[in-house]
Design a protein around this nucleic acid. Structure first.
Lengths: 333, 333
DNA sequence: CCGTTTCAGTGAACCGGTTCAGAAGGCCGC
DNA sequence: GCGGCCTTCTGAACCGGTTCACTGAAACGG
């Protein structure tokens, strides 16, 4: 085990400048001291190679400079991008992200939330699997919690970045209707308990409004299973003329199914996705999909949590609107 | 700003049990105390809702339980998967990853490495942009450093997970030769300073050995530019019969180029990638590519760094071998 | 039976900052 | 000339654990 080089402490800087440790502490943070003293302290600190010890600072001040990021599942491209973006964005604000993955297990999610609190993160960004869990209100009282995707029920969390999924559904279905489709199949990850994608309710309402005949089908997790399910659904004589998938990866399964069945996209069946995965532009044909502006979401979430941590009053709730990326999987070449 | 609920300290547990704080500290870690005392202490701790304070522990013991992960660029799918995997793997060992992104800037990389050291991470996993930087030897002396992808020059880092890229090149080129190709174009991200993908040197040597005529072309960063470059390269009369891309995303650009030019894959031109991005199996046609077993790499790196931190003697160097995923982009349907 | 180990537990120092109450000095107005 | 206020700085407590040197007692060995 390598030996850590001993670094200068604040007391040594104090000794070098003839000041008290307290004065040095203040001076280094630029408060409660004269310009001249600050200058002198900085010089001495540089001289000695002094660097603040974040751990000691955290213990004394109660803030760690770390923000917990609790993800439902990092398997998911979407959450992965979010995690990476948030990590970068926090770093730009001199904070670190502690990224943690619940592996799609709500129990584990709650355990990890506690664990992060015990790690003394300054705040928490969470895209919850189970926003109604009783832990959230409790947690929100002891540290700033910002939720992404859906408000945490019951707890008045300190911030929310909400996706307007209804708008996303509307965009996709209107697009399909405008292209003349009447019979649309909707493939959704799960029907219930995906609070951020309330497919069943809103899809049916919108379909009614637009005069569409929809059939909602649950897609399994894996690509292979999704492909099978799509093959079954597209084989019958009452094949829909368009498929709306509630995630791009489901759409990939549909693409695979069309290959199996020898169907042309969009000639025999139009396909519309949800997420705008970068890969979706590269498929043959490129996939029409609902785009979510990840950067904007990241920015909102980080800004919310940081402002709450810093005690700045902030708008508590940000709603992000999706847009539709129209490509050839619905319009043809 | 929400008020943090005050939690029980070790001294309160000591008071409750009539022991000294030191005894409680020992008992909770199961050392230096009798079974019976440990039991009593645990009971009292549960009673009081005591949870260890990681920050205080870190300050006193000098270990934070955090491992820094320094990535060259999280833009890259490859590094993103690695980061996510490492983060999960560390979590499973009760440690946290501090993920940090250098945005492809070697200077920033070094600054971040220092910053992580100052954050007192217990160890560092790094996929360096610049393994020859003079900082590495210095850093390796003050904390465990494990490099992924290429050994850190000069510094005897505490561990290395090395990719056998030569083997990857060999696999791909042999595969193409076996299919009868003679004129192969190689698309590589950059010629120099990609130590983990020493394309130019080894490609030429292997091509010679296999009797292939290769042309090495540098692919730009973005997909659009890559597509343009590929269009230019594939348009001329001396079009190669196969393209070997040093990353799957470059291959995506080649796919786009073949669409522009109306070329059939693999009929007019066979394409082989490198990385085995999950999406590559979904393209039309599915992409033949060199696969790297990310889980294995993750596991090796985490194991190395954790063992060094824990002072366990370990094999210092692990070499990972790639395998070839043969799909239709070279063999046809 | 007495000297030597081992074991369980104690007290105090320590990790390296922050923060609070208070003191010294300078400046102000009256 | 004096009370009051502001600025700058100090001393000491504190954050909440860990660890080291040491003690008393029990176990052990010859």
């Amino acid at each position: 085990m390598p030996e850590r080089r001993k670094r200068a402490t604040i007391r040594e800087v104090a000794q070098a400048t003839g000041l008290s440790p307290a004065a040095v502490s203040y001076a280094l943070r630029g408060i409660q001291t004269s310009e001249e003293t600050q200058e002198r302290v900085r010089a001495a600190a540089d001289e000695l190679g002094y660097e603040a010890h974040p751990i000691a600072r955290a213990l004394a001040s109660g803030r760690t400079g770390m923000v917990g990021l609790l993800c439902g599942s990092l398997e998911d491209y979407w959450q992965q991008s979010l995690a990476v973006g948030i990590s970068r964005s926090l770093l730009a604000r001199d904070r670190y992200a502690l990224i943690v993955d619940a592996f799609n297990d709500p129990d584990r999610e709650l355990a990890l939330a506690r664990q992060l609190r015990d790690q003394r993160v300054d705040g928490l960004i969470v895209q919850s699997l189970d926003p109604s869990a009783p832990l959230w209100p409790e947690l929100s009282e002891s540290l700033p919690v910002v939720s992404i995707g859906d408000a945490l029920h019951g707890g008045r969390s300190q911030g929310e970045v909400v996706f307007d999924n209804r708008r996303g559904v509307t965009l996709a279905l209107e697009h399909l209707r405008d292209l003349g489709h009447r019979r649309v199949m909707v493939l959704t990850p799960t029907l219930d308990s995906t609070p951020d994608r309330p497919a069943d309710v809103h899809v049916n309402a919108e379909a009614e409004r637009l005069g569409l005949e929809v059939r909602v089908v649950v897609a399994p997790q894996s690509l292979a299973e999704t492909t099978e399910a799509a093959v079954r659904a597209l084989r019958g004589p009452d094949r829909p003329s368009a498929v709306f998938c509630f995630s791009d990866s489901i759409a990939y399964g549909v693409y695979a199914a069309t290959r199996v069945l020898g169907l042309a996209v969009p000639g025999d069946v139009a396909v519309c996705g949800y997420d705008n995965h970068p890969m979706s532009a590269l498929l043959t044909p490129p996939l029409t999909t609902v785009d979510w502006d990840i950067d904007g979401i990241v920015h909102s979430a980080v800004r919310l949590v940081v402002d709450v941590i810093d005690g700045k009053p902030r708008k508590r709730r940000v709603v992000r609107e999706p847009s539709l990326r129209v490509r050839e999987s619905t319009t043809g070449a």
